[in-house]
Each structure stands twice: as structure tokens, then as C-alpha cells.
Write a protein that binds this DNA or RNA. Sequence first.
DNA 1: TCGTTATATGAACATATATTCATATAGTAT
DNA 2: ATACTATATGAATATATGTTCATATAACGA
Lengths: 114, 114
Amino acid sequence: MAAKKHPALSAAQLAGVARLFAVLSEPSRLVLLQALHAGPLTVNEMVEASGLKQANVSKQLAILHDSHLVRRERDGNSIRYEIADPMVFSLCNLVCSKMVRDAQCAMAMFHPEI
Amino acid sequence: MAAKKHPALSAAQLAGVARLFAVLSEPSRLVLLQALHAGPLTVNEMVEASGLKQANVSKQLAILHDSHLVRRERDGNSIRYEIADPMVFSLCNLVCSKMVRDAQCAMAMFHPEI
DNA sequence: TCGTTATATGAACATATATTCATATAGTAT
DNA sequence: ATACTATATGAATATATGTTCATATAACGA
């Protein structure tokens, strides 16, 4: 039986969805989000935590900010970023559990007894 | 208070997560997934339903198949695809609800009374 | 076997974007 | 005002990939 709860999304809506997935499709941005998972951080702190160059961190944060995934706030001379929408972690958890499922499935092809 | 339920993901794990988001970051692939939401379809049926060229549909389906998001099965002369992991729709629904939230937030900046 | 239909794939092209360097902007302190 | 620190941004480059055309592969029917 085919599921059909939601109406089809328009091309523009699909483009919007695709755009947000694209924001999450870059490991450097996921690194930054993961760092922010523990709490707010300044740009410099994220540069140190991630090993990425400062210019790169700034640009990736700008992209995350444009997508309303992070919020920023000036703190003296620095700028502190924090997660604006915890939904990103729900997305990541779904993807992670899928990867575990796929991995278990692949494993089963070699070790059916387990 | 900072949330911290999950251990940090390794670079390889983040790359895997990013890869799956990348698969979902292309409108043409979302169109195909949305078409398959109503039930299994052959390549030709998806060409007609999507308006995309046949070569393009085949390539995008191959990418979806590599990610184990769709399954394929030969049916006579054609090949029938179907959703292999309904989790993709959970992902899309999360993103959609976020977009609604953001849109309502943007709206409120112009119509605070609503 | 031969022709037809359905799907996949290689080559070529255009486009998008991540990364880096250099520099600009903004805030702070002396 | 000047020097210093923190962050953002423009230019340049490299890389990835979506799209299309042409063609290959595979199944089916006569």
C-alpha cells in the first residue's frame, strides 16, 4: 500500500528543502554544528576546535546563519554563535541511525549467523 | 544548559552524514523521491512524471540507489524503483516544518498583530 | 536473428562552491 | 588617535557534479 499523507510539494518548495539539505551536506559545517552542540562558541574558539582556517569558519558560519540554523550575538570584541534550531540534530540522528541500519545490513551479508 | 547526549562523530562519520545530505540536496532527486512516495514506478514513468530527461533520471536514480534510499527490481523489460528507506520522508518533513516555522517568524516581523 | 523498447553509461560542458590568501571592518584598550 | 584583536569579505583557484547527447547494454517480440 502506497503512503500518501502529504500533498506534493511545488518546485519552489522542493528547492527550499534541497537548499537546506545542501547546507548540511558539507563536513566542515557539520563539524561546526557539532562543536556548537556543547554550547555557544566564538569564531576563534571554533577555529581552534575545528582546525579550519578562520576565513573558512566565518564563511561556513555565515551560510549556517543564512539558513537560520545558528544565531549570533556580539560579546565585546568577539561574536558568539549558538544553535538556533535544534532540529538539525534530529536530522543528523535520523541519518546516523540509517547508516547504522545499512551497516548492520551489510554486515549480515558476510556474517548471517550473528 | 548545553545538551550533550551523543558522543562526537568522527570525521569519517561526519563525511558519511554529509554525503547522505548531499544526496538529498538536489531538487531533481527530491522530485523522484516524491514521485515514488505514491508507490513504485518504472524509469519511464518517472521520466514522464518529472519532465526530466531519461539519462538524467537514470543517473539520479543510481545515486539514490547507491545511498540505499531506493530499491530496484526488474519487471520484464523495465526496471521498477521503489522507496527503500521511508526515513527520507521523515527528514523532509522535519525540514518542511522548519521552513514553516521560519516563514511564520519572518511573517511576524511585518505583522506582529497576527 | 532482427528490430524495438527500456535502461544505463561515457564524454563534454556548464555551474556551483569549498578553500585559501589578502584585506577590510569593527570593537577594545592604551 | 594608534595599536591590537576578532570577524567578515573579495578575488582566485580547484574541485565536484548536474545536465545533455550519443551510444551501449539488456530484455522482449516477430
